[in-house]
Write a protein that binds this DNA or RNA. Structure first.
Lengths: 197, 197
DNA sequence: TAGATTGTTAATCGATTAACAATC
DNA sequence: TAGATTGTTAATCGATTAACAATC
């Protein structure tokens, strides 16, 4: 559920000495309602103590478990353009348990160079690479025209979660989950809400 | 409403010779239901012709109107790090009616240089700049620690829509609308859906 | 008329939340 | 016991959608 990461964020930001947190606090951090939080947590079968609150470390573990990020996750980025490079450089990912282990491009001038610690590799090599260092999450940062084709290749190689920054919807089998981040659509929605204030 | 930009995207991608579109097509493009589409459009008081469909050019105009993007929108980006630069360079924005007219940073080594066509300016100059070339939308691409402070300054200068890429929620007055794009949270949600397939 | 597609009704579903008993 | 806070009920609200009459 979409609020769990927000609860997790609060837990991480909390003073390390804190060992309990209330539904009230979690609600505020997530922009939700306290009853809502209690619902959510009881729904993932996590329980607090009446009159006290929820155990911070236990909740942390439980949410990570639920999100499927108990272990560090390996991520590949496809497309070493401006956006792909920015994402590869973004330190926040590692802090949150995601390791960018590969950056793919088709431009021979880029292949072999590095972005931060990450080597840019030939997209053609995807097949072989998958044998050694596999990843289940990929970030698509390629031009719109290439997105569908690349998505299909990724899926072929066992990727089952795609975060798509290309401004087109990609069609993938049902077993693959995709999230679309489209800058211009975000701005349009923002403009919509902005225009009715 | 959040689906309008998706309808708009289809209209733009449609063959220019097409002059009508059905709720069925719009639904497919937006990942929604045809009844849903008809609801949405009738809700913004836009009507089609029974047995025929909706007029493509008229719907295009109507949606833009509703989203508040009938005219081109001026956007400023704050933060000329990797992400800010990537966003400034992203051609897709202009195509969708958004002009990046300013890129702010506090790093004296960056100020005065250009990213594409956009000059990097001193954040301190925000006040004066606002007099000449004002913008109502800003994209926050600064480090988490600076986000709140910068957001407040933007709001002071009349910005009332903020797209926030910094991995913290910013607190702003009610009259300001904010959208949060948090890469690691997106990945966490993605992982959640991926892990239950 | 026959075919197509809208606009709207009515049913359904899920998400939200106030409220409060339970209980630490 | 008094105070705090959970867990859950029940009411409410809005979003979704099948279905179909309206009508081009």
């Amino acid at each position: 559920m979409v609020r769990l990461p927000r609860y997790l964020r609060l837990l991480e930001d909390l003073d390390p000495s804190r060992d309990v947190v209330s539904s009230e606090e979690l609600a505020e951090a997530a922009g939700a309602n306290a009853a809502n939080v209690r619902r959510d947590l009881s729904h993932i079968d996590f329980h607090g103590v009446r009159g006290i609150g929820y155990s911070v470390p236990e909740l942390n573990v439980r949410i990570r478990q639920e999100l499927g990020i108990a272990d560090r996750q390996r991520v590949a980025i496809v497309g070493a353009g401006n956006l792909g490079r920015a994402l590869a450089n973004y330190g926040g990912l590692s802090k949150r348990g995601f390791d960018v282990i590969a950056l793919y491009d088709t431009d021979v001038r880029k292949i072999g160079t590095k972005v931060g610690d990450v080597l840019i590799q030939d997209l053609e090599g995807l097949d072989g690479d998958c044998l050694s260092k596999s990843f289940e999450i990929a970030i698509l940062a390629v031009p719109a025209v290439a997105a569908q084709q690349v998505a299909e290749r990724l899926v072929e190689h066992g990727v089952h979660s795609i975060l798509n920054f290309a401004p087109v919807r990609v069609n993938v089998p049902e077993k693959v989950s995709v999230r679309q981040v489209d800058l211009s659509m975000e701005l349009q929605v923002l403009s919509y809400y902005g225009s009715r204030l």
